[in-house]
């Protein structure tokens, strides 16, 4: 599905995002940062869940391991962010690779349960690891940065760049040879293997990219909240959003999670301020149930159906015109 030239649109989005940091107040970057975090998580989840057909319930585990990679590095040597981000990608990419080997034996709901269990095991490990603060948590002290209006504005711009990069990668996978192989795996893994698709290798690529991307989304989180403890890092809302956003947007293409994240993320940030921050999960739940029941292909699916319907109507009208003429 091609809407507009991708790269010009991405570049424009980035420039507008950077410019906006000088005009709007702090709140918008905090809200925008959270929406973008959801967008990266949703895009990552969809690479495995939407393209490959393996449901990951343990997204919060990957996200939190990205965050804890930052905490470990910060505590040890406090390196600059351009070191922290790739490090989180590597750690969580390896974690994803491990999850990929699970697909050898586990499919469907069993794979989903295993990923959930993995997240819980990781959380228990972090709770009991003193070096990263254990159950008490760890503080991160951020320093002022030049050029940007504030540290949050700086994080927002970084997150924007990472989000654009993630979407670009997902888009590439969607349209590439790999993406076509993943689609075959999603439809029928046995038939895909017999059609010459190296299913294990492609699944490992898929889980590794997913893990790395989620790690990147989590890497900046400690710097954003300046205090990390296991319960908030392994938060249920992170895992639920990562599933809900692609489901609402549509899982079959790279566009779906982007639409779902922008929509659901904005609605959540709006309700947080205007109604109640406790209502968030309820809204996600209601929307998710509604979409799964009424529009399982998500917003993208609805749009495609609508496009097909209007095309049909137009052709029918043209047929009627020529019949009367």
């Amino acid at each position: 599905m091609r809407i507009a030239p991708f790269w010009p649109l991405a570049a424009a989005t980035f420039v507008i995002g950077v410019a906006a940091t000088f005009y709007f107040n702090e709140y918008y970057f905090v809200a925008g940062y959270l929406v973008l975090q959801g967008l990266i998580m949703a895009t990552a989840w969809n690479i495995l869940g939407g393209f490959t057909g393996y449901v990951n319930f343990g997204s919060a585990g990957f996200f939190a391991m990205g965050a804890y990679t930052s905490v470990v590095l910060y505590t040890a040597i406090n390196p600059p962010l351009f070191v922290v981000i790739p490090a989180a990608a590597v750690v969580c990419g390896l974690l994803g690779l491990g999850a990929g080997y699970l697909t050898l034996r586990l499919r469907g709901v069993y794979f989903a349960i295993a990923t959930l269990a993995m997240a819980i095991v990781l959380e228990t490990l972090m709770v009991n690891w003193e070096y990263v603060g254990g159950a008490i948590g760890a503080f991160i002290i951020t320093e002022d940065v030049p050029f940007f209006a504030s540290y949050n504005a700086y994080l927002f711009v970084l997150m924007l760049a990472l989000a654009i990069g993630s979407v670009a990668l997902a888009r590439y996978l969607n349209f590439s040879r790999i993406g076509r192989g993943l689609a075959a795996i999603r439809d029928d893994e046995v038939a895909a293997e017999c059609a010459g698709v190296p299913t294990l290798r492609l699944k490992l690529i898929s889980t590794t990219v997913m893990g790395a991307m989620m790690g990147v989304a989590g890497a900046l989180y400690p710097y954003f909240v300046t205090f990390v403890e296991p319960v908030s890092a392994f938060s249920l809302i992170v895992a639920v959003n990562a599933i809900a956003m692609p489901m609402i947007g549509g899982t079959s293409t790279w566009v779906g999670p982007v639409i779902g994240a922008l929509l659901l993320g904005s609605v959540q940030e709006w309700t947080k301020v205007n109604i109640s921050s406790e209502l968030n999960l309820l809204i996600v739940g209601v929307l998710l149930v509604g979409f799964v029941a009424l529009a399982p292909q998500g917003i993208v699916g609805l749009a495609q159906k609508f496009a097909a319907w209007t095309r049909e109507q137009r052709e029918k009208r043209r047929g009627d015109d020529s019949a009367t003429a």
């Binding site: 689609a183 439809d187 029928d188 010459g196």
Partner: peptide
């Protein structure tokens, strides 16, 4: 066991590619 999200032609393109 067709690749049911794909068209008939796309089904054949998978082995032709892989």
């Amino acid at each position: 066991r067709p690749f049911s999200s794909m068209t008939v032609l796309e089904n054949l393109c998978i082995p032709l590619e892989y």
